[in-house]
Structure formats: C-alpha cells, structure tokens
Design a protein around this nucleic acid. Structure first.
Length: 681
DNA sequence: GCAAGGTC
C-alpha cells in the first residue's frame, strides 16, 4: 500500500510551484470549499524517505491560528489594564481561516505523513507548528513526533525543490517557541499599554476639543519607535540654530573653460582663520598645479531588489508611498508577472537561469532592445548583496506582460522591477575621472571632471544619474597660474529636512523595526492614529557643489524657479540629521518633488515627549526595546533561553515600566497640555 | 476600540 503524504505550504503560489515540480505534469487540481485561493493538488511521488506515495499538496495563507485574551478580558472595562500581563490567552482559528483549517483537518484523516513546506524563516516554522496543531485535531496520528516533517528550501527552482523533497527534517521547536513568545508579548504589552494610554489621555482630549475621539491611542513596540524617529527629526529641525561659516572660492578660466576649485577644508566656522588663509592665497598670487590624475572609474550597477529597496525607490522615483507600492507589487505578483514581493534577499541563487528571465523581456516594452542586447552579448552576472532570508529570491520579473494591459500604477512598479532586474544583469557604467589639485598659498583646492565612456546599465535604469561634467582644460603638473578669481564666501548651515519616507524606511530597517512585510503598515498606522502626517516635500534647488544624488529625472516637471534654498544636505547627512549644508537665500517654490516627508501632529509630539520626560532608563519611543526582543528571540532559537524565561522576564520588565508610567502620568498630561492644547508652562 | 506577524 502506498503511503499518503499531506504537504502544506505557506501560500498558494508555493503549493502550486512545488506540486508542479514534483508531479512532473501529472497533477490533479481541486478547489476547496469556502476559499477561492487555496487549492489541493493530487499527484504521485517517490520520496526517498517513504517510497512511492500518494501526495496531496495544499496551503494556508500565513498564520492559521490567532491569539487573544479569553472572553472575560476582551472588554476594555472588564479589568485593570495591568491584568493583561497575566490574563489567560487562547489560540483559535479566525473566521476567515476556518475553510483552510477545515481543509487541513479533513485531509489529515486520509494521510499518514504531514510534510510542512512553509517558508524557511522563523515565522514559517511557527506557521508549520500551527498546521501541525490543526492536522492533529483531524487525526491523532499527528500527535506523534515522527509523523510531521518539514522541507528545507530557499527558492522554488525545480532542482532545488526536488532536492528538498529528498531530505525532510524536523520542525525546529526553538524557532516556534521564539515566535510564540513574541506573539504573546506583543499582545500583552500592546493591549495593556494601549488601554492604559487611551484611558489616560482620551478623556483629556475630549474635554478640550469637545469632540469624540473614537480611536484608541495605541502603543506598540513598532509603531512607537516609528513615531519616535519622526518626532526626533522634527525637533532637530525646530531646534536647529544656523551657524555662519566662511570659505575660499577659486575659479580659473583656461581655454575658454571656467573651472571652479573646491577648498580642501570645505569651510570653517572661524572667520578670522579664513581671512588669514585667504590673505596667504592672495599674497602668493599664483597657484601651482600639484596633481593631475586621470583614471578609470565606474558606477556600479544596483544590487538585486529587496522589499525595503523597492519601497524606498517607490517613494523616490515612482511617487508612490510605501503602502501603495506594496499593494501594487502584491497585485503584480498575484497575476504572475513578478516574483514574491516580500523578500530581504539581495543575491540571486547561483542555480537560477537569469538569461531565460532576461529573454522573456525581449518580447516587448521599451526595454526590449536592451534585453535583446543582453542576450546577444552584454549579460553580466548580478552583484551579490549580503542579505539572504533563505525564503525568497530578490524581486524580479517572472513572465512577460504587455505594459499596456496593466493599470497606470502597475505599469510604473512593473517597469521599475523589470528595469532594475535588467540593470542587475548588465555591466557597470564605465568612465574616466580627472582630478586636479592646486596649491595656492598654504591651501589646497581640488577640481574634478568626469567623462562617461560606457553607459551600460544606465541605459535601462534611468533612476540613476551619472553624467559627464564639463570638460576640464588641460593642466600639467607643476604648472603655475594666477587664478582668474579668488574670493571669500560667507554661508550659513541650513537645518535638516523633515524625515522623508525613504529615510524613515532606512531607519526602521537599520533598527529592526518591523519586517519587510510590515514596515509600510507601521508607517500607515502612525498616520491613521493621527500621530503624524505626511506631505510631499517642497521642491528645493540643488546647491552648486552638491555631491551626486540619485534623483529621478525631474526635467519634465515645472521648476521651482529662482534661487531656491539649497537642498543643503546629502541623503546620508540628512539621514543622520547632521549639520546642514551651505545655504543660499530665498524661499522654495510651490512645486514638490513628490517624496513624502513626515511631520508629527501635536498629539504625536506630546506622546513622545510625555514618555521621554518620564525618564526611564530604556525609552519606549526608541528602538532599543524592540532590538532587545529580537535578541531574546535569537537566544531562544539558539537554546540559551527558554520561552518561559523570556516571557516572564520581559513581562516583569514592562510591569515595572507600567507602574512608573502610572506614577509619572503628570509628565504625559503636561506634554498633552503643552503641545495639543498649546498651553504655556 | 488594543500588538505584530503571516498572507489573498
């Protein structure tokens, strides 16, 4: 008698792909009752471990079980919020998951082996355990430890999947425990602090505004640090004090070309020092060329596309906020045009046939000739980033679709994904860079020029800019000349801008706030909770000596006109919120760049400052607590801690914080009065 | 009416 194996994937797409690979064409598909997306695939397969088997492959759609407080604690008034630290909780199947759970429960009765094919990450491991729980409800057999197995795979290439099918392993209970700990802690802490915060502040707001605030004032380990980033930058902008600086500017005209030399010291904040150095230049009268160097340079093609990068690029180049980009990408994925859009991986698996994917893009679209050229001769293996989530490849096009059959927004996101992928498979751009240094008095000044020789990937990836500068005249080392113009320049540092969406995403990513799948939701949440607002950033013109920034082509957009305030900061400096750059004068125009910037509401500011002023050692509005949780989960995974340890010690920690927030509630109330009610003192 | 994490 053949063994019957029930395979369950984390999502329908994986079930379909795996079934097709294993079945080799001989597969029967059946719909399940009550769910449009989940299918059961039937086929035969000879697993080395179990011999010839009759296989049913199906899927869930993410987590199958939900966790909640038992009924008596669900009503807000039913208990003191702090009771939620220890209130009993239960796991159950949510209504919209019932059909999928019933399918697994029923199928379990007819099978002897449960083979889990969820993503190979922590959440996938936990989802696998949930599937096992539900299967065991249908068939007691699955309470036995050796009846449930798990496939290990990191992509859905045929050979890889077939290889995975040969080596089933056990579920990693440590990873499962790490996730169930997180779920329990997020629930208890989130619910407790949210109810308490709402009780403490809502009545105050209503008394003042007279209006009903129907919304809770929520606390969450991701949403609060997200708000914290926005507020921190807001204060840095508001508290910014401009500083005057001085510099020396040197221009020399030769062969009809004006060359601006940049002072090696950039600028100094001491006027007298600059006066002295400037006078030495004038006294010297002539400058001597100390270096003329021309060397090849290149601009690297981009890394394979991750979710975080897609969201950042969406904000910068496509004028779509992160939630919108993800929604559109999700649709493109479901229609089968692009690969799974939630991935942290920025390197392609060696075994992937990338040329075949490029080939598909030769069928049409503006990029078709470029793709054809890659096939003919230009193909180059993509660069490899350092991230691999072991669950999904970088985002890439999987099939050709005529752009005209897509909606406007889909076209923009799809075009970006295709162009990014083709850029990854191209050669770096090549150029020649000339650097000239002069010694003028005691000071060194530099000028550089770039000639782009081969555009390569740039031809398909207009989101990157790399253009030849004006040709430099010929200088020779040792040459002496009297500069055409030398003058002292006075400037002022300018404040950093408000936090933009790409910057916020970078900060969340760097600090482990949220995951690729949830970051956009956390950003949306601080908006719906009315903690922050976003608006398109006013357009600002670029400062002369601004380093290269990679901006979308804005040529088609109306110019702000005039001498708008210098953009004044490189992206990197802006992210650090460091000292601003040189500042010209004049206001920004009315036009916008489209990139969203975030400004906290008065409530958002009050919440952050109110909690900050409570003076806890570890701040609720900074990312450290979330980082700590991440470390604790890791400790569980590595067997250094148990779930019970982690849950207990974390709850004790927050219980302490809770008691203190109660004692120092005045701080929060004062902040609300100060910012929301705009009262003095 | 609460969280964050999956996913359709």
């Amino acid at each position: 008698m053949v063994t019957k194996v029930l395979c369950v994937a984390e999502k329908p797409s994986i079930a379909k792909a795996v079934a097709n690979h294993l079945a080799g064409g001989q597969v029967q598909v059946a719909s399940i009752q009550g769910n449009l997306y989940t299918k059961n695939y039937q086929f035969s397969y000879d697993f080395p471990t179990w011999g010839p088997c009759s296989v049913t492959m199906t899927s869930v759609a993410g987590h199958l079980l939900s966790t909640e407080f038992v009924a008596e604690y669900r009503r807000w008034g039913s208990c003191d919020p702090s009771a939620l630290f220890e209130a009993p909780i239960e796991t159950y199947v949510e209504d919209d998951k019932k059909a999928v759970a019933a399918n697994i429960e029923r199928q379990a009765r007819y099978h002897q082996i449960l083979y889990i094919w969820t993503d190979c990450d922590r959440e996938g491991e936990a989802i696998g355990a949930e599937i096992r729980t539900v299967a065991a409800q249908g068939n007691q057999l699955f309470r036995q430890p050796d009846k449930t197995w798990r496939a290990h795979f990191s992509n859905i290439e045929r050979a890889h999947i077939i290889n995975a099918a040969r080596g089933p392993v056990h579920l990693d209970e440590a990873q499962v425990n790490a996730v169930t700990s997180r779920i329990e802690l997020d629930l208890r802490i989130g619910a407790c602090f949210t109810r308490n915060l709402t009780n403490s502040v809502k009545a105050m707001l209503q008394r003042h505004a007279g209006a009903e605030r129907t919304q809770a004032i929520s606390y969450g380990s991701c949403q609060f640090p997200t708000l914290g980033f926005v507020v921190e930058r807001y204060f840095r902008v508001r508290n910014f004090i401009p500083e005057t600086f001085w510099s020396v500017k040197v221009m020399h005209q030769k062969d009809g070309i004006k060359v601006n030399f940049n002072w090696a010291r950039t600028h100094l904040f001491d006027r007298m020092a600059v006066v002295i150095l400037f006078e030495r230049c004038l006294t010297a009268r002539t400058a001597r060329v100390t270096k003329v160097q021309t060397k090849p340079t290149s601009k690297w093609k981009p890394l394979p596309l991750t979710t975080v990068e897609l969201q950042k690029c969406g904000s910068r180049f496509l004028r779509l906020d992160s939630q919108r980009v993800m929604h559109v990408a999700e649709q493109l994925y479901q229609k089968g045009w692009i690969s799974y859009p939630r991935t942290e991986t920025d390197k392609f698996d060696k075994g992937m046939d990338l040329r075949a994917l490029v080939q598909k893009q030769t069928q049409g679209g503006a990029w078709a000739p470029f793709a054809q050229n890659l096939i003919n001769r230009g193909f180059s293996q993509p660069r490899e980033g350092r991230n691999d989530d072991k669950a999904h490849p970088p985002i890439h096009p999987v099939n050709f679709v005529m752009p005209t059959s897509l909606t406007q927004e889909e076209q923009r996101v799809h075009e970006f994904v295709v162009r990014r992928f083709l850029a990854c498979c191209s050669q770096d751009a090549k150029g020649s860079k000339t650097e000239i240094s002069i010694l003028y008095g005691s000071e060194t000044f530099n000028a550089s020029g770039l000639v782009v020789l081969e555009r390569n990937y740039l031809d398909v990836y207009p989101y990157d800019k790399w253009t030849s500068s004006q040709d430099l005249p010929n200088f020779r080392e040792g040459e002496v000349f009297e500069p055409t113009e030398a003058r002292m320049h006075e400037g002022e540092t300018s404040p950093p801008g408000y936090l933009t969406e790409p910057e916020l995403i970078s900060l969340m990513d760097a600090n482990g706030i949220g995951t690729d799948a949830t970051m956009a939701e956390h950003i949306a949440k601080i908006k719906t909770r009315e903690y922050a607002e976003s608006r398109p950033r006013a357009r600002q013109t670029r400062r002369d000596n601004e380093e290269e920034e990679y901006e979308p082509d804005e040529a088609a957009e109306p110019d702000a006109g005039g001498r708008g305030r210098a953009r004044g900061r490189s992206r990197a400096r802006a992210a650090r919120g460091g000292r601003g750059g040189a500042n010209g004068r004049g206001g920004g125009g009315g036009a916008t760049t489209g990139v969203l910037e975030f400004i906290p509401t008065t409530l958002g500011v009050a919440l952050v400052e109110g909690y900050e002023n409570m003076g806890f050692e570890i701040s609720l509005t900074k990312p450290f607590l979330r980082k700590e949780m991440e470390l604790k989960m890791k400790a569980i995974c590595e067997g250094r801690k148990t779930k019970a340890d982690v849950v207990q010690e974390t709850i004790e920690q927050y219980r302490g914080v809770y008691v203190q927030t109660q004692q120092r509630l005045d701080s929060l109330r004062a902040a609300v009065r100060k910012y929301v009610f705009q009262e003095d003192g």
